[in-house]
Computed example of a mutant assay.
Amino acid sequence: MTTQSRTAGPVLLTATILVGLTAGTFFVFACAVMPALSRSEDRVFVQVVRDINDVIQNPLFLLAFLGALPLSAVAAWQSRTAPHRWLAWSGCAAYALAFLVTVVVNVPLNDRLASATGSPAAARADFEDMWVLWNAVRAGLSVAGLGLLAGALTVRGRR
């Protein structure tokens, strides 16, 4: 048994867990955090979102968010000749797209809100609808990635 074959299961499992944690984070924002904040007045909305964006940059979240992509890529590579390879590659691709949406859309919106001066109403108007829309996209992509990686684990476990 090669080192690669000994590590394939644990790597796929860990990638699935990390994608799941990230998907859950984005899902909670879509289902609870942002709908609750939408009820807030502008100044409170802007301050709370700024605070969330500060505290979410912590080692645990960054481990899941940043670790999921390379681990899912390694898991997909390790699965390249296995029956579950298309599930693993598709799960990796779905998460990679969610990661891309985060880096290209959500983080720049967060940065723009953090540096916004002027009225909280204008800062919110420039942020909320676009961020909520793209968060839903990345949540959906992450959940799809989770389902596909879980499917890969299931097929792998059957062999």
Score class of each variant (00 low, 15 high):
1 M>C: 06
3 T>M: 11
3 T>W: 06
7 T>V: 10
9 G>C: 09
10 P>H: 04
12 L>Q: 03
12 L>D: 01
13 L>K: 04
13 L>A: 13
13 L>G: 05
13 L>F: 10
14 T>F: 12
17 I>G: 06
21 L>R: 02
22 T>K: 03
34 M>R: 09
35 P>S: 04
37 L>W: 05
37 L>I: 05
42 D>L: 00
43 R>N: 05
43 R>H: 09
44 V>K: 07
45 F>K: 01
46 V>H: 04
46 V>A: 08
48 V>H: 14
49 V>N: 13
50 R>H: 06
56 I>G: 07
57 Q>L: 15
61 F>L: 12
62 L>Q: 12
62 L>H: 09
63 L>H: 12
69 L>M: 06
71 L>P: 10
71 L>Q: 03
74 V>D: 10
75 A>M: 11
78 Q>G: 07
79 S>F: 00
79 S>Y: 00
88 A>S: 06
88 A>N: 04
90 S>C: 09
90 S>R: 08
93 A>Y: 01
93 A>I: 03
95 Y>E: 06
100 L>Q: 14
100 L>C: 11
101 V>M: 13
106 N>H: 10
106 N>T: 14
117 T>F: 01
118 G>Q: 04
119 S>A: 05
120 P>F: 07
121 A>Y: 00
121 A>I: 02
122 A>W: 00
122 A>P: 00
122 A>K: 01
123 A>F: 03
124 R>W: 00
125 A>G: 00
128 E>P: 13
129 D>G: 14
130 M>Y: 10
130 M>Q: 13
132 V>G: 10
135 N>H: 06
146 L>S: 03
147 G>A: 08
148 L>K: 02
152 A>K: 02
152 A>I: 07
153 L>N: 09
155 V>P: 07
